[in-house]
């Protein structure tokens, strides 16, 4: 009886040191040497040398001169220490109301767009609340607004959208997508909007 208990205690100590300390710390050392940027969260530094965010983590955008991301339930929106989806069920009134509200917001912000042309990612919340991407259709729909707010050519903005659009990985994995933060950073780099804080 007691013999098995002693064996178990010795075993858990050995495995905790091996799998809980040596293994993760060895992987950390490897990562810091060979993939330093990714290992530290794929952070982006802006022109002023400050950290502007992570390539992989979405940010809130609401002013017209920026492309807008999806609706987020992470904290009060894109809170990267409170990742979460809405978890609203299909027959929950709150879900249908949220979708209706998102839809009317998209229609109001982008004059001339019809409800039947709005892609579904524009009106629904992501799973993580930190989704860095929107669909190319949702980006396309926002191009005229952003171009107008920045006094840029529509074609110029569209070229930037294309630049930050990724297709399916290896040709068949995942869905085409646009990285909102990278796109907005590039817009700022090209043309600082004067009335920004």
């Amino acid at each position: 009886m007691m013999k098995e208990l002693r064996t178990a205690i010795r075993a858990i100590i050995v495995f905790t040191i091996m799998l809980g300390l040596i293994y993760p710390l060895a992987v950390t050392v490897f990562a810091q040497i060979f993939f330093k940027s990714q290992a530290n969260g794929s952070l982006i530094v802006n022109q002023d040398g400050k950290i502007a965010g992570s390539v992989l983590i979405g940010q809130s955008f609401s002013s017209p001169e920026y492309f807008h991301p999806r609706s987020s339930f992470a904290g009060t929106g894109y809170d990267a220490i409170q990742s979460s989806g809405s978890c609203l069920g299909p027959t929950n009134k709150k879900l249908v109301e949220a979708v209706a509200e998102n839809l009317s917001k998209v229609l109001k912000e982008n004059p001339g767009v019809k409800a039947k042309d709005v892609p579904v990612d524009a009106v629904t919340a992501s799973a993580s609340g930190l989704d860095p991407h929107i669909s190319p259709e949702y980006a396309e729909l926002q191009i005229p607004r952003v171009a107008k707010a920045r006094s840029m050519d529509v074609s110029e903005v569209r070229a930037l959208v294309d630049k930050y659009t990724d297709g399916r990985q290896i040709g068949f994995l995942g869905e085409p997508r646009v990285n909102v933060l990278l796109l907005n950073l590039e817009l700022d780099r090209i043309k600082k909007v004067s009335n920004r804080r």
Binding site: R70, K116, V120, A127, H133, I134, G174, E175, R177
Partner: peptide
């Protein structure tokens, strides 16, 4: 709401 036949369910899903 979106005035079409069907809309795939993207609530709680990631674009990628």
């Amino acid at each position: 709401l979106m005035q079409r036949g069907t809309v795939e369910n993207m609530e709680g899903k990631e674009v990628r």
